[in-house]
């Protein structure tokens, strides 16, 4: 299986200040690969380092060690961002701040195309295709982000990510800010796009149920290191690591009777484990 994205022993440190300041390492060497058409889910709590992995792949933070290879080409040089842009794109969590409020949807979607040399007419046609692709009305292009609901904005963000036909899309909590019924629709849209275009997703979320629904393989991350990696079924139904088990049991399920059992089991687990 050919991997479009390969991350090996990635380390990231933050916050070195002054001459004698020490960097705090937030990622302690993580490795994984993603094949074309595959979703690699990354689950963890806040501060686990999951977002930092995504930002390193996007070239938004510089790794302190390790390699990131995109399609066979190492991307250790951040100055090659413009070429990187064609290969890897992003959908962020918050659809309210990830779209520039001062630009129309048409401008937001056509800007990456124009920057990469597409002429105006072709860009306009591509924008129309993209809006259709994410099931937004054709006249959406003339409007501003504030005129759309959270779910619709996330569709716009997905269209923007698709515009340069990337091989990899980093999805950083793309549905956490959405209503439950909207969440399912956006996830299904992402899956459908993946099935047609064969894009690889690095899917980052705190929500195991969401990750399980869209990911082929899942890694659980805690304090900057993977604690467990496996297929979605393995990790979410038969977790090997106690941390994964804790995470799994902590998420409440919408069934009062089952939730009562899980709660009791969680308490048993907590009592058994040293604090």
């Amino acid at each position: 299986m050919s991997e479009v994205l390969k991350v090996s022993d990635l380390r990231v440190g933050f916050g070195r200040r002054g001459l004698f300041g020490k960097a705090v390492e937030v990622l302690h060497g993580v490795s994984f690969g993603i094949a074309a058409g595959e979703t690699f889910g990354l689950v963890g709590e806040s501060g686990s380092g999951k977002t930092t992995i995504g930002r390193a792949v996007l070239g938004l933070v510089a790794p302190s060690a390790g390699t990131i290879v995109l399609n066979g080409v190492p991307i250790d040089d951040l100055r090659r961002r413009r070429r990187l842009a064609r290969e890897v794109q992003v959908v962020f969590q918050d659809p309210y701040t990830s779209l520039n409020p001062a630009m129309t949807i048409e401008d937001i979607l056509s800007e990456p195309l124009r920057v990469h040399g597409m002429e105006r007419g072709a860009a306009a046609r591509r924008v129309a295709d993209l809006l259709d692709r994410v099931a937004l009305p054709a006249d959406a292009g003339r409007r501003y982000p504030r005129e759309f609901s959270g779910g619709q904005r996330q569709r716009i963000a997905i269209a923007r990510a698709l515009s340069l036909e990337p091989r990899v899309i980093v999805c950083d909590e793309p549905v956490s800010a959405l209503d439950l019924s909207t969440q399912a629709r956006i996830l299904d849209l992402l899956i459908e796009i993946q099935d047609t275009l064969g894009i690889a997703y690095l899917f980052i979320s705190h929500d195991l149920a969401v990750v399980r629904h869209i990911s082929h393989r899942v890694a659980v991350i805690n304090k900057g290191a993977f604690v467990e990696t496996g297929t979605a079924a393995q990790v979410t139904e038969d977790p090997a690591h106690p941390y994964t088990r804790r995470l799994l049991l902590a998420a409440p399920v919408p069934d009062p009777a089952r939730q009562r059992e899980r709660r009791a089991e969680r308490h048993r687990l907590a009592d058994a484990a040293p604090a």
């Binding site: 996007l58 992003v90 520039n100």
Partner: peptide
């Protein structure tokens, strides 16, 4: 986040400053 998104799209710094920061 929209500035990050613009960087990911491969925009140069000057363009980001003029198009994405200044109007806001």
């Amino acid at each position: 986040l929209y500035v990050d998104a613009a960087r990911v799209s491969g925009l140069g710094h000057l363009r980001i400053a003029v198009r994405h920061v200044l109007p806001n």
